[in-house]
């Protein structure tokens, strides 16, 4: 465990807690894309298949349970909660994520480290995580202005993967044969996707004005 990875995990944890807090306290999910939350639930479900078979550390298991629990409860809140569901804007959140799930499955079947069920599912979850934010970014573009909790959520989510890239660089130089092309490429693609959001987020923060994304 290195500082970049710990910071990345904490940032990731903060992003889901900010979202849960927002939905739980103001009982609203305005501006949140249910599609992205469903994709993240799939990402964690397909990545943590080994949660009960391979014990790595208490930290690892606890964090996996938190990520699984939070992502599924966020989906539950937006879909089922009698008050929260009313603020879900399904007319705007129309991203057809079958167009990203199928290519990720196909890609995971042909580009993976080992053609086993667990390995292909893990690879699929990496590819899917890289593009899972798309419905959320599309929704933000459509609704144009975003409240700062949603902005913080997307920012933290992007920052976590950028920190993971630093962690992979650190591990590449400090551990022998630590070569994992697949998460590296998926992670870079993911961070680049947040690139333009970071740009507008930084400028709105610098000029201390409400974050407005261009149409």
């Amino acid at each position: 465990m290195n500082i970049f990875r710990l910071a990345g995990d904490m940032t990731h944890l903060a992003s889901v807690l900010v979202l849960l807090l927002k939905i739980h306290t103001i009982k609203s999910c305005a501006g949140i894309s249910l599609k992205t939350q469903e994709l993240y639930a799939i990402v964690f479900a397909t990545r943590y298949l080994d949660i009960f078979t391979d014990f790595i550390s208490l930290y690892n298991t606890i964090m996996k349970l938190i990520f699984l629990g939070s992502s599924f409860s966020i989906v539950w809140y937006i879909r089922q909660h009698k008050i929260v569901r009313r603020s879900y804007d399904k007319d705007q959140d129309t991203f057809r994520y079958v167009f990203i799930v199928l290519p990720c499955i196909f890609l995971a079947l042909i580009i993976n480290e080992k053609f086993t069920f667990k390995e292909v599912m893990w690879t699929f979850s990496l590819y899917l995580e890289a593009v899972a934010i798309l419905p959320q970014l599309v929704l933000l573009q459509r609704t144009r202005n975003i409240d700062n909790l949603t902005g913080q959520y997307v920012f933290l989510l992007g920052a976590y993967r950028a920190l993971y890239i630093l962690n992979w660089i650190y591990r590449y130089f400090t551990e022998p044969h630590y070569i994992h092309w697949i998460p590296w490429i998926a992670g870079i693609v993911q961070t680049l996707l947040y690139g333009d959001f970071f740009y507008y987020y930084f400028h709105s923060w610098k000029n201390n004005k409400k974050l407005q994304l261009p149409a």
Binding site: D9, H12, K114, E119
Partner: peptide, 10 residues
């Protein structure tokens, strides 16, 4: 054939 490294990251 080398085994893929264990997945110790989240």
């Amino acid at each position: 054939e080398i085994e893929p490294l264990p997945k110790d990251e989240l």
